[in-house]
């Protein structure tokens, strides 16, 4: 999996394996956790200080719960690595980026050239999200 990991962060990759949410909540020293699609990201909010990696599972690219999980974590101030894992495809990555994901562990290899094109294609965005892109309304009104 590590071979296919796409990281859009400058820091060193975290090497501690992610534990399940139940294990994480039951032990005090884990620094990496994996959220399944149906699990509540808000359960992590009291522990953000010690987290270095949150891995969010996408069992199918059609299952969009992970987008909300990511935004909730970023809105609460989480700054560690936020990884989308599973059925992660080229055409969903731009939205994932906007929701705060900054690393990707796709189950199948990604065409990086296509990904770069898709990430760059929309010059502006219409709404606020978890990234720092200014929405069009802000650009219009300075």
């Amino acid at each position: 999996m590590a071979d296919d990991l796409l990281r859009l962060r400058d820091d060193e990759a975290h090497d501690e394996p992610a534990v399940t949410l139940d294990s994480f909540l039951g032990q005090s020293n884990a620094t990496a956790v994996r959220l399944e699609a149906g699990e509540d990201a808000r359960a992590l909010l009291p522990h953000l200080e010690r987290l270095a990696l949150v891995e969010v599972s996408f069992p199918s690219f059609r299952d969009g719960r992970g987008y909300s999980a990511a935004r909730i974590l970023r809105e609460a101030g989480y700054t560690g690595e936020l990884r989308a894992e599973g059925d992660v495809l080229v055409d969903q990555i731009a939205h994932m980026r906007r929701c705060g994901f900054d690393s990707f562990a796709p189950a199948a290899p990604i065409d990086e050239a296509a990904m770069a094109r898709m990430l760059a294609i929309q010059p502006h965005v219409y709404q606020c999200a978890a990234d720092d892109r200014a929405p069009i309304w802000k650009l219009r009104h300075g």
Binding site: F61, R62, D63, G64, Y67, S68, R71, Q92, A94, H95, M96, R98, C99, Q122, V125, Y126, Q127, A129, I136, W137
Partner: peptide, 14 residues
């Protein structure tokens, strides 16, 4: 219309 266009969180709803 503008707010919902390419909304990053709500493009893969149930």
């Amino acid at each position: 219309r503008q707010w919902s266009s390419f909304h990053p969180e709500f493009s893969y709803l149930p």
